[in-house]
Amino acid sequence: MKLQKNIQTIAKNTLLQEAEAVKKVADFIDGDFEDVVTNIFGMKGRLIITGIGKSAIVANKIVATLNSTGTPSIFMHAADAIHGDLGMIQADDYVLCISKSGNTEEIKVLIPLIKRLGAKVIGMVSSIDCYVAKHADFVIKAIVSKEADPNNLAPTTSTTVQMAMGDALAICLLEARGFSAQDFAKYHPGGALGKQLYLKVDDIYPKNELPVISQDELVKASILVISKKRLGAAAIVNDEKELVGIFTDGDLRRMLEKHDDFSNLTIGEVMTSNPKTIEKGEYAIRALNEMREYDINQLIVTEGKKVIGFLHISDLINEGIV
């Protein structure tokens, strides 16, 4: 039991220490950081991000985030750069060198070579009193005082801060580009996330049956229509074919509890008025959110006051956005 409590304490202290470091590094968002964003936004070339060890892993993550938010980026491992990969750098490019110490040998060798090619160097470092900070054209201050590791050796807090600064950079560039949800969808067409961003109600409802019943229709005949269409519900319309209600399995149960004889009842007498609807052209994710908000399994798809389709929760599950 004592060991379990110790583990929980260690884990909580680690998270709190890293959270505090991210909070403190916000104080180093200054004019230098703004210059970095402005120059990357206006560059004619590409952004190449490099590092070694854990910083290389962070660099890969930042590259992925930038690419998915509209800033073309390339990863270059610092060790590979000085063994041939340097050829990917062009004069119009900017190279972001990530290094905690700013004194790593591979990075120290790399920076003069980058400058010789005419590219600009951005340093992301944990100390401004280092080789990278002194020789880079721009500096991002990812400053941390201590790692979460009790020996202050394993890159933990420093890599967390580096990734956070990378996110800050990506979001600033996203805002500068006016990058929209539709733009985001272009780069994420697959999986649940992509479908949430581009799948529309119109892509789904035409596959379903369309049970529509006049409000003057007798319940018995209506139930046969609902059973045949296999959606467990029907849209109820008036003489002008405008939506006035819905009849579901729940309405059927409530009717049976209330009426022993329903042979002369019309569907309009037992329907639920003012049903929840979704307009044609809306995104499917909005339909999902409405179903969750109102705890219902289906929505009637409308075009103005006209019923044009049904959307069921199972449709959204099958599409993979739930």
Rank of each mutant, 00 (worst) to 15 (best):
R253Y: 06
D251G: 00
K258H: 05
G268C: 11
H188R: 13
K200H: 06
A235C: 05
A154Q: 15
A234V: 10
L197A: 04
A185N: 04
C172A: 09
T159N: 10
A185P: 04
I143R: 03
V212C: 02
V144H: 00
T159S: 12
K207H: 13
L224C: 12
Q182V: 10
S222E: 07
N208V: 15
A181L: 14
G250M: 11
A221C: 08
H259M: 12
G232L: 07
H259A: 07
T272N: 15
F179Y: 09
G166W: 07
L210I: 14
I204N: 00
N264F: 10
I204T: 01
A176R: 12
A176L: 05
L252D: 08
E209Q: 13
S180A: 07
V244T: 13
V161R: 00
H135A: 11
G166R: 01
A142Q: 05
V244A: 15
F179G: 05
E217I: 02
V201F: 01
G232M: 15
I140M: 11
A168H: 03
L193R: 09
A136S: 10
S273G: 15
K200Q: 08
V144S: 01
K228V: 07
V201K: 00
D167A: 03
L231W: 14
C172I: 00
G194S: 06
T272S: 15
A168C: 05
P211L: 00
Q215T: 04
D183A: 00
K200A: 05
D260N: 06
P275A: 01
F247Q: 02
D183V: 01
G166Q: 03
A185E: 10
E269P: 03
D167G: 07
V270I: 15
T156S: 12
I267R: 05
I143M: 12
M163I: 13
M255L: 08
I204F: 00
M165N: 15
Y198H: 05
K229P: 13
F247S: 06
I246D: 11
D167S: 11
D203W: 06
N208H: 11
P155C: 15
E240K: 15
K220V: 04
F179E: 03
D261F: 04
K186T: 03
Q162A: 15
S180Y: 07
Q182C: 10
K207D: 15
